[in-house]
Design a protein around this nucleic acid. Structure first.
Length: 817
RNA sequence: GCCGCUGUGGCGGAAUUGGUAGACGCGCAGCACUCAAAAUGCUGUGUCCUUGUGGCGUGUCAGUUCGACUCUGACCAGCGGCACCA
C-alpha cells in the first residue's frame, strides 16, 4: 500500500466506480424502508459557494449514514433555475438568461460531482424546463377553477424613470432605483394571488405536532400566520351615510379611541384631497416609501387631518380621521381606530399631533397607570367606559361585540396576519402565468391541451423591462372560449412557486401524464430536509401550503411535506457572512484542487454543528488535510506490517481499554450522526480514537487484532463524511470491495462494561477530590469513602456536614457550613 | 419597529437530562528528527497570585438550587427574516 495519501488520484477513481455501477440510482422497493433526504436545491448563480458545500455535505452524510443502516435512500439534486440574477446578467452582458442559466448549471453540476455527493442524477430537475413548469401552470388553472386563485390590486415598487417594477432588492437603502437612481414610488397594479389564507388555520394547527422541526422555525411560522381574535366594526362618518370599517383585537379599549387613521390610497383620503392641495401633497409624499414592512415600521410616522370626522359608535362623539403613512390599503380594511392610551404606536403618534389620550383600562392588580410616560398596554379593568366600567378583558370583549352584532354594524372575526400570496412578477425569466384576457370573456385560463405556455428563450433585453411585454408573437393570442383576438398574460410566477413542489416531482420527474404519479406516494414525505435558516418562513410555509393543494387535488395523500427539518447556519469569514459584495469568499473549487474533496467535506463538518453559523478558517482546512494524511499513514503502516495473525486471544488491560474506547466511539458517533446531527462532535471522538491508536504500540497478535478492529470501525464511521478515502482504505485493509454496501458497526456492550468508575467529590459544589470505586458500590459506601478523603476533610474542618448528595456513577456533593 | 436565534480561552467550538467548564481542533511556545528548512512526532498552553489537588472564571445584573454555560426575570451586543433576492 502506498505510504502517501493522494486524493487527486483516489477521488476521481472512486467516483468512476460509483458512476459506472450506478451506485446511487434508486427505485421504489416496498419491501425496504425508504429514506428521502433532500437539500434545498440551489439557484444556479454561477459557481458553488461554501454555503452550498456545507448544505450538501450535511445531506450527503445523512444519506450515506441512512444507507449504511440498510434503508432505500433517495437523494436527488436539481436547479431552482428561474430568477432575477439571470435577467441582471442578461442586461449587463447581453446574453439570454436561458443560455446563462444552462451554462451555470453545467459548471455547478460538475462541481457537485467532484465533491462526490451520492445523488441519483437520473432525477435531475431544472425548473426552467417546460416539462417542469407545465405542471405548475396546469395546477394554477385547476386552482383558478376552484376559486383558490384570484386577481386584485397590489402594491409594487415603481421606478418612474425606467417605467418598470422593481424588486425590493433593486431598491437601495435611500429608496432609489438601482439603475435609474430615481426615487421609487408605491404603486398599485393588478396581480394574481393564491388563497393561502384559506389554509391558515390548518397550517397553524399542525405546527404544534411537527416534532421533527426546530422549535424556532415553528414559532416563527406561528407568529407569521399570526392568528388573532377580534372585532370588525363600523364607525359612521359625520354628515353622511358612509361608514369606516376597522378591525381591532382590543374591543375593550373602544371607548378610548380618539382618532382614526386611513391609508393614503383610501377612498376617503382621496376624496378629501380633491379640494385640499396640502393634503393631496401629503398623500403623494406617502407614496415615496418602499413597499416593505421593515421600511414602514421604522420610518417616521406621519399623518394629516382629512378634515372629516367619524362618530364614535357608542358615545356619538366626533373622532378626527387622519391619513397616515404607516397604514396600508392592502392590509386589513386600510383603516384603523387609534387608542393612544393603550397602544404604544398610537400613543407616540397622538403626542406628535396633539391628539387626545384617554385612559379606559386600569391595572387590575392596583398598580398605577401613568399615561404621560407611555401607553398602558396590558389587559386590565375598564374605566371611563360608561356601562362597561369594571369589566375585565373577556367580559368587555363579549359585551361590546354583542352590542355591534345586535345592531348589525360589526361582528367578531378571526383575523390572520398572513396575507394571500401574490404570485405575479413583472419579469421575463420565470414561468408564464397561464391566463388569457379577452374583452368579451374576461380572464380565461389556458386550456390543458394548450399547455405549456412556453417561455421564449431566444430574447434580447432592451433596458430593464421584461422582453415579453414587447413581444406581440408572445402576447397576441386567440380567446379559448370565443376565438376572438385576446391578449396573453405577460407576468410570470414568483420563483417560490417552483420551489413549492419540486420535492414531490423528484419522485417521478419523467412523468408526462400527470404532475405526480404513484411513485410520489412511495417516496414522500421527505424524511430529512436541509437548508438555510433564511427560508424558515416563506419557502417552508409555501411548500406546506402547496403540499395541501396537491393533496386536495388528489395527487398525493399527505399533509406535511417535510417530516424532519434541519436548518443550517451561515458560512462566515472574519465574523461576517461570506459574500461577493464583501469580497471575503473562498472558492471551493480552489480548495478541492489543492486538498481534495474529502478534506473540504471533513473540514466543513468538523468545525461547528450544522444549525450554527460556521466560521471559515484557512488553517482549519490544513488541519483537516493533516488528519486524513495521518489516518492514511497509520493504516499504511498497519497494512504494510501485517505479518501478525488476526486473533484476539485473551485481552490485557491496555487492549481492553482500547476496545472499550472503540465501542464507546461507535455508540457516540452513531448517536451524533443519526440523532443529534452534531457531526463536529462525532469527528472529535473519532480523532480521539485515532490519537489512542497512534499511541498504542503493537507488540503481539492481540495488539494487532485490536488495532485492526479500531481501523475497521474508524473507516466505517468516517465513510459518510469522507467517502473516497474510506472506500480506498476499506479495500486496502482487505474488508471488501465497496464500503457503501457494508452495514454500520454496532457497539458491543460487553466491550464497554467496566468494573470500576471514577466519582467526583465536591464540597459545597466545588471539586475537591476524585475517587475510584467499584461500579456497584452502594450510596452509603461511597459516602463513607468520600468523607474520609484527605482534601475533603480539610475543606469541611470546623464546619458541620448538613447533607451529602450522591449521584450514582457521577459525583458526591458534601454540603457543609 | 416586529418576530426568531446566538453570546464560553488568542480563535472555531465541547460539556446530550441542572452534576468535573474548556473535549477535539486551530494558533502559539519549547523540544526531537535535519547540515538546514519543510513535513512529522512529543510536551505545554483560561486567568490571577502567595504555585495550593489555591482564588477567580461561560455577554451584564438579579433570582431559583446542595449544585447553573444549562432554568427564570430584566438588560446589552451581534446575526437572520419581515411577504418582488433566493
Amino acid at each position: 500500500m502506498d505510504e502517501i495519501y493522494k486524493p487527486e488520484v483516489i477521488e476521481p477513481r472512486v467516483q468512476e466506480v460509483w458512476d459506472s455501477t450506478q451506485a446511487f440510482a434508486v427505485s421504489e422497493d416496498p419491501a425496504r424502508e425508504k429514506f428521502y433526504c433532500l437539500c434545498m436545491f440551489p439557484y444556479p448563480s454561477g459557481a458553488c459557494h461554501m454555503g452550498h458545500v456545507r448544505n450538501y455535505t450535511i445531506g450527503d452524510v445523512i444519506s450515506r449514514f441512512q444507507r449504511a443502516q440498510g434503508k432505500n435512500v433517495l437523494q436527488p439534486m436539481g436547479w431552482d433555475a428561474f430568477g432575477l440574477p439571470a435577467e441582471n446578467a442578461a442586461i449587463k452582458n447581453k446574453v439570454p438568461p436561458a443560455k446563462w442559466t444552462y451554462k451555470n448549471i453545467d459548471v455547478m453540476r460538475s462541481q457537485l460531482q467532484r465533491l462526490g455527493f451520492a445523488y441519483d442524477w437520473q432525477r435531475e430537475i431544472a425548473t426552467c424546463r417546460p416539462e417542469y413548469y407545465r405542471w405548475e401552470q396546469w395546477l394554477f388553472t385547476k386552482l383558478y377553477e376552484k376559486g383558490l386563485v384570484y386577481k386584485k390590486n397590489a402594491v409594487v415598487n415603481w421606478d418612474p424613470v425606467d417605467q418598470t417594477v422593481l424588486a425590493n432588492e433593486q431598491v437601495d437603502s435611500d429608496g432609489r432605483g438601482w439603475r435609474s437612481g430615481a426615487l421609487v414610488e408605491r404603486r398599485e397594479i393588478p396581480q394574481w394571488f393564491m388563497r393561502i389564507t384559506a389554509y391558515a388555520e390548518e397550517l397553524l394547527a399542525s405546527l404544534s405536532e411537527m416534532d421533527g422541526w426546530p422549535e424556532a422555525v415553528r414559532t416563527m411560522q406561528t407568529n407569521w400566520i399570526g392568528r388573532s381574535e377580534g372585532l370588525e366594526l363600523d364607525f359612521p362618518i359625520e354628515n353622511g351615510n358612509e361608514s369606516l370599517r376597522v378591525f381591532t383585537t382590543r374591543p375593550d379599549t373602544l371607548m378610548g379611541a380618539t382618532y382614526m387613521a386611513v391609508a393614503a390610497e383610501h377612498p376617503l383620503a382621496v376624496s378629501a384631497a380633491e379640494n385640499d392641495p396640502q393634503l393631496a401633497a401629503f398623500l403623494s409624499e406617502c407614496k415615496n416609501v418602499k413597499a416593505s414592512e421593515a421600511e414602514l415600521e421604522t420610518m417616521e410616522k406621519k399623518g394629516m387631518h382629512l378634515g372629516v370626522n367619524a362618530l364614535h359608535p357608542i358615545s356619538g362623539e366626533p373622532v378626527p380621521i387622519l391619513a397616515a403613512n404607516f397604514v396600508l390599503m392592502g392590509y386589513g380594511t386600510g383603516a384603523i381606530m387609534a387608542v393612544p392610551g393603550h397602544d404604544q404606536r398610537d400613543w407616540e403618534f397622538a403626542n406628535k399631533y396633539q391628539l387626545p389620550i384617554v385612559q379606559v383600562i386600569t391595572d387590575a392588580d392596583g398598580g398605577t397607570v401613568d399615561l404621560s410616560q407611555g401607553a398602558f398596554v396590558s389587559r386590565g379593568k375598564l374605566v371611563n367606559s360608561g356601562d362597561y366600567d369594571g369589566l375585565d378583558f373577556d367580559q368587555a370583549f363579549d359585551a361590546i361585540s354583542q352590542f355591534f352584532e345586535q345592531k348589525g354594524t360589526g361582528q367578531r372575526k378571526v383575523n390572520y396576519r398572513l396575507r394571500d400570496w401574490g404570485v405575479s412578477r413583472q419579469r421575463y425569466w420565470g414561468a408564464p402565468i397561464p391566463m388569457i384576457y379577452c374583452e368579451k370573456c374576461g380572464d380565461v385560463p389556458v386550456p390543458e391541451g394548450d399547455l405549456p405556455v412556453r417561455l421564449p428563450e431566444e430574447v434580447e433585453f432592451q433596458g430593464v423591462t421584461s422582453p415579453l411585454k414587447t413581444m406581440p408573437e408572445f402576447y397576441n393570442c386567440k380567446c379559448p372560449i370565443c376565438g376572438g383576438d385576446a391578449r396573453r398574460e405577460t407576468d410570470t410566477f414568483d420563483t417560490f412557486v417552483e420551489s413549492s413542489w419540486y420535492f414531490a416531482r423528484f419522485a417521478c420527474r419523467d412523468s408526462d401524464e400527470a404532475m405526480l404519479d404513484e411513485r410520489a406516494s412511495y417516496w414522500m414525505p421527505v424524511d430529512q430536509y436541509i437548508g438555510g435558516i433564511e427560508h424558515a418562513i416563506l419557502h417552508l410555509l409555501y411548500a406546506r401550503f402547496y403540499q395541501r393543494l396537491l393533496r386536495d387535488e388528489g395527487l398525493l395523500d399527505l399533509d406535511e411535506p417535510f417530516a424532519n427539518l434541519l436548518t443550517q447556519g451561515m458560512v462566515l469569514r472574519d465574523g461576517s457572512k461570506m459574500s461577493k459584495s464583501k469580497g471575503n469568499t473562498v472558492d471551493p473549487q480552489t480548495l478541492i484542487d489543492r486538498f481534495g474533496a474529502d478534506t473540504v467535506r471533513f473540514f466543513v463538518m468538523s468545525d461547528a454543528p450544522p444549525d450554527q453559523s460556521f466560521e471559515w478558517s484557512d488553517e482549519g482546512v490544513e488541519g483537516a488535510s493533516r488528519f486524513l494524511k495521518k489516518l492514511w499513514r497509520l493504516v499504511a503502516d498497519h497494512v504494510n506490517n501485517s505479518s501478525l495473525s488476526d486473533d484476539f486471544g485473551s485481552l490485557n488491560t491496555e487492549q481492553k481499554e482500547l476496545r472499550r474506547q472503540i465501542h464507546l466511539t461507535i455508540e457516540k458517533v452513531t448517536d451524533d450522526i443519526g440523532r443529534r446531527h452534531t457531526f463536529n462532535t462525532a469527528i472529535a471522538s473519532v480523532r480521539e480514537l485515532i490519537n489512542s491508536v497512534g499511541r498504542f504500540e503493537v507488540r503481539s497478535a492481540g495488539d494487532y487484532a485490536v488495532v485492526r478492529e479500531a481501523f475497521s470501525v474508524v473507516v466505517q464511521l468516517m465513510a459518510p463524511i469522507t467517502p473516497h478515502i474510506c472506500h480506498q482504505l476499506w479495500q486496502e485493509l482487505g474488508f471488501g470491495d465497496s464500503i457503501i454496501d457494508a452495514p454500520w458497526p454496532v457497539a458491543d456492550p460487553s466491550a464497554m462494561a467496566q468494573s470500576e468508575v471514577e466519582l467526583v467529590i465536591q464540597v459545597n459544589g466545588k471539586l475537591r477530590a476524585k475517587i475510584r470505586v467499584s461500579a456497584d458500590a452502594d450510596k452509603t459506601a461511597v459516602e463513607d469513602i468520600a468523607l474520609k478523603e484527605e482534601n475533603v476533610v480539610r475543606h469541611i474542618e470546623g464546619k458541620s456536614v448538613r447533607k451529602v448528595i450522591v449521584v450514582p456513577g457521577k459525583l458526591v456533593n458534601v454540603v457543609a457550613n
